[in-house]
């Protein structure tokens, strides 16, 4: 409704011209780095551990696949690899929202390419990296199962997305570096829960339980979208650094 109203007002009234805008712009320093250049510059500031961890997971999945003998096919690969993925999610979330942990958000907010653009850049690169990692792992894992891409994808995505969702919920409640411990506990908890699924292997990974996996992925994805939306709003309202000591 608000957006409709805004668009309606925009269509009905022509905005007044800014007085002296051109003279102002002529007199001020203009950035020499365009948005694309800024985005690329941010790739350099994503810590190497994020990429190393992704690489190690892919390597582990590959080794696991090679170790599997034909006919030994079971859901072992799903719960083992699934139990590792919360840690991939943990590095992704913690790298994306590290500004708050390290007290950089106020400086980043005051820059031309502001905090929300920095976070977007991180999400773009880390998200793409994780997507590639997950796809490779999915392709490798699927070869040991007869469950098909869709079901295998759900089994692997659930622990990953659930960890992301829980960490993002936590990020809204625990500010600063104390959150790190909470995130680590969350990732370990999801990983442990996923490992316990080995005892339910003959039921929970069966097609009858597909709705449970779909529901888990859907809810987790919904929470992630909602939390990212909240974070964007908080940054726009410039109110999220209020926990800093006055």
């Amino acid at each position: 409704m608000k957006r409709k109203l805004r668009n309606g007002i925009r269509e009905a009234f022509e905005p007044p011209k800014s007085p002296g805008k051109e003279a102002f712009l002529r007199n001020i320093w203009q950035p020499t780095l365009d948005y694309r250049g800024f985005l690329l510059s941010q790739l350099h500031y994503i810590r190497k551990r994020v990429w190393i961890l992704s690489f190690l997971f892919v390597m582990y999945s590959l080794l696991f696949l090679l170790k599997q003998t034909e006919g030994s096919c079971s859901y072992e690969s799903v719960w083992i690899i699934g139990a590792m993925l919360p840690f991939l999610a943990l590095t992704a979330v913690s790298e994306t929202i590290k500004s708050g942990w390290w007290g950089m958000q106020e400086l980043e907010l005051s820059c031309r390419y502001s905090l929300n653009q920095v976070i977007f850049a991180r999400l773009l690169f880390i998200g793409s990296g994780n997507l590639i990692t997950l796809t490779v792992i999915l392709v490798l894992t699927e070869k040991t199962l007869s469950a098909g891409f869709f079901r295998t994808g759900l089994y692997l995505l659930t622990p990953y997305l659930l960890t992301c969702a829980l960490c993002l919920i936590l990020s809204g409640r625990v500010r600063g570096r104390e959150g790190r411990y909470g995130y680590a506990v969350t990732a370990a908890g999801v990983s442990a829960a996923n490992s316990l699924l080995r005892y339910l292997e003959h039921s929970v990974y069966q097609p009858d339980y597909l709705i449970f996996w779909l529901f888990s992925v859907g809810i987790s994805a919904g929470i992630i979208v909602y939390r990212l939306h909240c974070m964007k709003k908080e940054m726009e309202a410039r109110s999220w650094n209020l926990y800093l000591a006055e």
């Binding site: 250049g37 590290k98 390419y113």
Partner: peptide, 27 residues
Amino acid sequence: PQSFGYYPEFKARDFMLYLAALKGLEK
């Protein structure tokens, strides 16, 4: 700001170059 942090792996030069990129300065 009154108090500001920095990423733990940053050297003084990295810190400056990082903020220079955010301020739109070409390399």
